[in-house]
Computed example of a mutant assay.
Amino acid sequence: MDNFKQQLNQLLNDIELEMQRIALWQALPPEPNAFLSEQPFAIDTMQSNEWLQWVFLPRMRAIIDANSDIPRNFALHPYFEESLKEEEEVLNLLQLIKTLDELVKE
Rank of each mutant, 00 (worst) to 15 (best):
N3W: 11
K5I: 03
Q6T: 11
L11H: 05
L12T: 01
N13A: 13
N13D: 14
E16R: 00
E16Y: 00
E16T: 01
L17I: 09
L17G: 04
L17Y: 08
L17H: 10
M19F: 01
M19E: 00
M19K: 04
Q20H: 10
R21G: 02
A23C: 12
A23H: 12
W25V: 00
Q26K: 06
Q26S: 00
A27M: 03
L28T: 06
L28S: 08
P29W: 04
P29A: 09
P29H: 06
P29E: 07
P30M: 05
E31G: 03
F35A: 03
L36Y: 09
S37V: 01
S37A: 10
S37T: 00
Q39Y: 14
P40T: 02
F41V: 06
I43N: 11
I43F: 06
D44W: 11
T45D: 04
M46E: 03
M46R: 02
M46T: 02
M46V: 02
S48T: 03
N49D: 08
E50H: 09
W51F: 13
L52P: 00
Q53T: 02
W54R: 01
V55K: 08
V55R: 07
V55N: 04
F56V: 06
L57P: 06
P58H: 08
A62T: 10
A62K: 07
I63E: 06
I64G: 04
A66Y: 10
N67W: 04
S68C: 08
D69I: 14
D69V: 14
D69P: 09
I70W: 01
N73E: 15
N73Q: 13
N73K: 12
N73S: 14
N73V: 11
L76K: 06
L76C: 08
H77Q: 13
P78H: 11
P78R: 11
Y79Q: 08
Y79F: 15
Y79D: 12
Y79A: 06
F80K: 01
F80M: 03
F80W: 02
E81N: 14
E81R: 13
E82R: 12
E82Y: 10
E86G: 08
E86D: 15
E86H: 15
E86V: 08
E87W: 07
E87C: 12
E87T: 09
E88M: 13
E88Q: 12
E89Q: 13
E89C: 06
E89A: 10
V90G: 00
V90C: 07
N92S: 13
L93A: 04
L93I: 00
L93G: 01
L94I: 07
Q95A: 15
L96N: 01
L96Q: 05
L96E: 01
L96M: 07
L96K: 07
K98P: 05
K98L: 13
T99S: 15
T99H: 11
T99G: 10
L100C: 04
L100P: 00
L100Q: 04
E102P: 03
E102H: 13
L103H: 03
L103P: 05
L103F: 09
L103K: 05
V104K: 05
K105P: 00
E106S: 12
